[in-house]
Write a protein that binds this DNA or RNA. Sequence first.
DNA 1: AATGAGCACAACCGCCTTTGT
DNA 2: GACAAAGGCGGTTGTGCTCAT
Length: 258
Amino acid sequence: MGRSPCCEKAHTNKGAWTKEEDQRLISYIKAHGEGCWRSLPKAAGLLRCGKSCRLRWINYLRPDLKRGNFTEEEDELIIKLHGLLGNKWSLIAGRLPGRTDNEIKNYWNTHIKRKLISRGLDPQTHRPLIGAIPCNTMNTITTSSDDLHGNAAGTINFNQEAQDEVLNLDLSISLPYHSQTVPSLTVEAKTTTNITSSSTPPSNYYCSSTSGNQAICVCCHLGFERSEASCSCNEGIGNHHPSLLRYLRPMGDEQEVE
DNA sequence: AATGAGCACAACCGCCTTTGT
DNA sequence: GACAAAGGCGGTTGTGCTCAT
């Protein structure tokens, strides 16, 4: 039983693509457009799985791809977006024109992880590595099954002083979209909730404009579609109570935390 | 020059989500 | 609403390259 394979494995090529295969794929898509990946290989005369064709096109053959090294600005943007979104590579890639999710994922694993570690930061949580936190700053280490992310991993509570030091992530972001209409934001970690020590992203952020108290939805500010970041705000910034804190919550969480 | 370790990245795998019937 | 097919995503692996020994 089990799921049927996405294609007939016995008659498909695997491994690196040849120039001829690339050319076939490019010409087919130029002539017919993207779509219907399952039937594409046969129609294009390729002995490849449809998924493989899609991946090859999206990651390497698309004409709008930007090749070459990542810039320092892209590095920092990736780090900040990862802090907000976690391993949502496709969402992150959506904010970096010409870059693909696979490329960013690889770059993260090979370069940025190390960069963050060298800064003394945990690449998953973006918080100081646990070894760097003095033991006496810890209040408790508890296990909770109903923390914000609903994971069963242990959650760590820091006292307020430690939190102030540890959680100022300063995730200010300069953005490709809407940047001229909204003042620059400082996205700070909420300091009153449990902090997960798991690999889930630090999603418990609230927004505050650096110039005032106005709460702004991070999702909307970032230009995400509501479905992308599970934003449930009512779009209008003014709809948020000025003293209420609106969080970007992880996908799948049903409750808005305020 | 040989070779082993580490790195970078292309590609695959399996699961989840979305869409159509 | 149930089901199947297709698309999409993130984690992982395989392979080629570079560099140190």
